[in-house]
Write a protein that binds this DNA or RNA. Structure first.
Lengths: 185, 185
DNA sequence: ACACACATGTAATTGGTTACATGATTTC
DNA sequence: GAAATCATGTAACCAATTACATGTGTGT
């Protein structure tokens, strides 16, 4: 069983919203699952080619062969949907989750409280920005897409993100206070 | 500036606890930062060789050349410490954080509530196990290593993990209830 | 005219896992 | 004497980023 997640990110996006080009797929990824997933063109275009060769997706509009830079729309096939469904049922990979911020914080005594403080500040800022985005998305989602069958699941991932970010922001306040305490003590 | 994080994970571990072999470094990584970082032998051994060639670490005990499978202890050099410190001050990389669980949940309407429910259940189980481990670590840490200069930072990363896991576990209860609602509606 | 968004793709490189190969030491 | 743990390393492969190269369409 193929388990390259890029494959399934693309299939999943095309299952929700067909007739998209590689360019559009990337944008859709950013706008929908961007807070926990990313795809680069270097992954997307070769993967689209491969998926088409495997019959999991098809070109859904005729392409003018003469024009090289023209838009190529893809849609998912029944075979592609089947593959996506099979993958969805497989237990998620409990991969080693690498967090560079935490790694720096863990070793921070080698650099001093000033450095630690600055990293935590940046971390909090990033999380505040992300939280604002997710809350906006939540509002827009409720207004626009509550009729889609995927809607409840989209909202669940959003509420997960909101919860994690709020926890992280509160922790940052506590952590900054703790590190400031080290500067004096 | 080199930014391969494996480099700094190793330097950081050796800064805290010198005279470790590749084998031991891996174990130390698992036991200290394992809940947010991982390293495989395939990364560790070649990296150790490279770091030694660059003078960032040194063999800290004589190695019997005749014996091939003998333990090689490394320690960090002043140059290595400097490199580690420089890296600690660089803003953490805000890399695209990929979460396969959330990706599966996001697309779950293509597979149905049963599949979603099972994934969430597994997610919660995993988080419960992790939380138990972290709470244990917290207790042990307080008893054993509160005198180390890195201790406050270690506790901060732990309390971050505990907070995130508790939030995730509470969310899972909510999410499972929501998905069960979909099965009936 | 210029900038910016649209659009597709490849090549080089990096970073990492996994499987393989080997052997010593300890514990039951 | 078998199994587990200690111990080091390489090779094959996979996934992904980044930089590069090219060109069109739209708006100011």
């Amino acid at each position: 069983m193929e388990r390259n997640p890029t494959t399934y990110a693309i299939l999943g996006i095309l299952a929700i919203h067909p007739n998209q080009s590689g360019y559009e797929i990337r944008k859709t990824v950013q706008q929908s699952v961007g807070f926990f997933w990313g795809e680069s063109y270097g992954q997307i275009y070769p993967t689209l080619k491969r998926l088409a060769a495997e019959g999991l997706i098809v070109l859904s509009a005729p392409v003018d062969v003469k024009e090289k830079t023209r838009r190529k729309e893809y849609s998912i096939t029944p075979a592609g949907k089947k593959r996506l469904q099979a993958w969805l049922a497989v237990p998620f990979r409990d991969d080693p989750p690498r967090d560079e911020f935490l790694l720096k914080l863990f070793f921070a005594s080698d650099a001093g409280p000033g450095v630690a403080l600055e990293q935590i500040r940046r971390f909090q800022e990033k999380n505040r920005r992300m939280l604002a985005m997710l809350l906006e998305l939540q509002k827009l989602g409720l207004a626009r897409s509550s009729h889609y069958p995927g809607f409840p699941y989209w909202m669940l991932t959003l509420s997960y993100g909101v919860g994690q970010l709020k926890t992280a922001i509160a922790w940052s306040d506590m952590a900054m206070a703790a590190v400031k305490g080290l500067e004096w003590g």
